[in-house]
Design a protein around this nucleic acid. Structure first.
Length: 449
RNA sequence: GGCGACGUGGCGGAGUGGCUACGCAGCGGCCUGCAAAGCCGUCUACGCCGGUUCGAUUCCGGCCGUCGCCUCCA
């Protein structure tokens, strides 16, 4: 098995990856909060980790990927109130949209997609464990995590508790024993239209605890990889790690992987900034192939600039691959191209370097294009498949309508009669129907424009 | 202010102590009646100032700039 090397946020180094159980890898990724439809930025971790799972499977691992949905959250209450709908209804609607929008990426579903609202029991149990061990305390119906009680707090995000901004005016400040403490359980407040029972009274879980409870529940503490956006490193992941460490006496995950932010005009795409491109609109405009290739164009840890130009380039790349696909034949690829396939996967094994892998893939494309004899698509299919783009090799089987074919045939006659003026005229006529005619050694071809 | 990341050719984007990344766009050529597609060639860069070194884009220091987190944003 190829040695996989991964960058771990906690150690800030790239190191060989070893799963806790040979041949099996468990991954938990923080998904969206469903208070609105997701934007392209939200899609990055979904794409990155869905594709990363494919690569691990290619390496021979059995993967369990869980990506949660946060459906209990302040933002949801606020958004629901603004729209005048029940928060539960809004969360349900936006969850459905999330599934629908990410389905269109064509990368399959994660193995688990837990909803916070369906894990309240486990969440309460974990909070109870923290209360019992003295890592959490009650205050006015709320339950808070005692940050100073965790000596390892800050080691993931490399922050010194003493140097943290003490944050004035933060919610619950009056109840906390220390400004750094954060809520595990929030007592029900007026205006909130959903609540759950707990030993500490009616209320709802804080944000961070759900991920500890769900990831532990699905994968067991000490699972292999925890992923998510870099913006979640602090406080979210630091808090998750602290909760599990204190409640279970074990680290939550072995490796922490964080994807970089999607930026628009050098600013992070965020609803608070107002520079939002909803995923479904981007898919409408550019197609899922270009979107997936766009994400592969930059290393997952780097920020990536979103815009018309990068997407247009991705579309051009998609077109080039489709173009090559027309010339390939089914079956295995020539052995002389095998080293390129090896380099492609070696690049992915090196901290999942998709742009480096793509560079090799383009070399493969060029080599295949310059070959005069039919080239087997096997290796390319294998590479594209791992990137979720094997469909580019499928025959679009676009059949031109018979009247367009008739025009093309008429053009062939004109060409053989060397009546090129007439031939060009007919090409225009064909273009007007939405088709391009392309002349080849074996006659014409018709392609949709 | 604290912590961190990053500054690569027209654009996007990898990587490396000395050797062509790659893609898009442009230009020239081959092919083609002309196109299209493809191929070949070309444009050969590493923010600024020092230091280490035989040699630095790559290591170290400083500066400038951009971005992220520190405010329950993927």
């Amino acid at each position: 098995m190829t040695e996989l090397r991964l960058y771990d946020t906690r150690t800030r180094t790239v190191a060989p990856f070893a799963p806790r159980e040979p041949g099996r890898v468990s991954i938990y990724v923080c998904g969206p909060t469903v208070y609105d439809r997701i934007h392209v930025g939200n899609a990055r971790p979904f794409v990155v980790f869905s594709l990363f799972k494919r690569f691990l499977e290619h390496l021979g691992y059995a993967i369990t990927l869980a990506i949660n949905v946060t459906d209990v959250n302040d933002k949801i209450y606020v958004a629901a109130a603004k729209r005048g709908v029940a928060s539960v209804a809004l969360a349900r609607e936006m969850t459905a949209h999330y599934i629908e929008d990410t389905d269109r990426l064509g990368l399959g579903r994660p193995d688990h997609e837990p909803l916070a609202s369906e894990w309240i029991e486990a969440i309460v149990a974990e909070i109870a464990a923290l209360v019992e061990t003295g890592h959490a305390y009650l205050a006015g119906g709320d339950v808070y995590f005692r940050v100073r009680g965790d000596e390892a707090y800050g080691t993931l995000s490399r922050r010194e508790p003493d140097q943290m901004d003490q944050g004035e005016g933060v919610e619950g400040a009056a109840l906390k024993q220390d400004p750094l403490d954060f809520a595990l359980w929030k007592a029900h407040k007026a205006g909130e239209d959903s609540e759950w029972g707990s030993p500490w009274g009616a209320g709802r879980p804080g944000w961070h605890i759900e991920c500890s409870a769900m990831s532990e529940g699905l994968l067991g503490p000490g699972f292999d990889i925890h992923g998510g956006g870099l913006d979640l490193l602090f406080p979210h992941h630091e808090n998750e790690a602290a909760q599990t460490r204190c409640a279970r006496g074990e680290e939550l995950a072995h490796v922490w992987m964080h994807n970089g932010m999607l930026e628009l005009g050098a600013a992070k795409m965020a609803k608070s900034v107002g520079n939002i491109a909803p995923l479904h609109e981007v898919l409408d405009e550019h197609g899922r192939d270009a979107v997936v290739l766009f994400f592969c164009g930059a290393h997952y840890r780097q920020p990536i600039d979103f815009g018309a130009a990068p997407l247009a380039q991705a579309r051009a790349n998609v077109a080039r691959l489709r173009e090559l696909a027309r010339k390939l034949v089914d079956g295995s690829s020539p052995p002389e191209l095998a080293p390129l396939r090896e380099r492609f996967f070696a690049s992915l094994a090196d901290d999942y370097n998709t742009p480096a892998a793509l560079a090799v893939l383009w070399e493969w494309v060029r080599e295949a294009n310059r070959r005069s004899e039919p080239t087997g698509a096997g290796d390319l299919r294998e590479m594209l498949s791992v990137l979720g783009l094997a469909n580019l090799l499928d025959d679009p089987s676009a059949q031109a309508p018979s009247e367009v074919v008739a025009l093309a045939q008429a053009r062939e006659l004109a060409r053989s009669a060397r009546d090129f003026a007439r031939a060009d005229e007919l090409r225009e006529a064909i273009a007007a129907t939405g088709w391009a005619v392309r002349d080849g050694a074996d006659g014409f071809e018709l392609l949709p424009l």
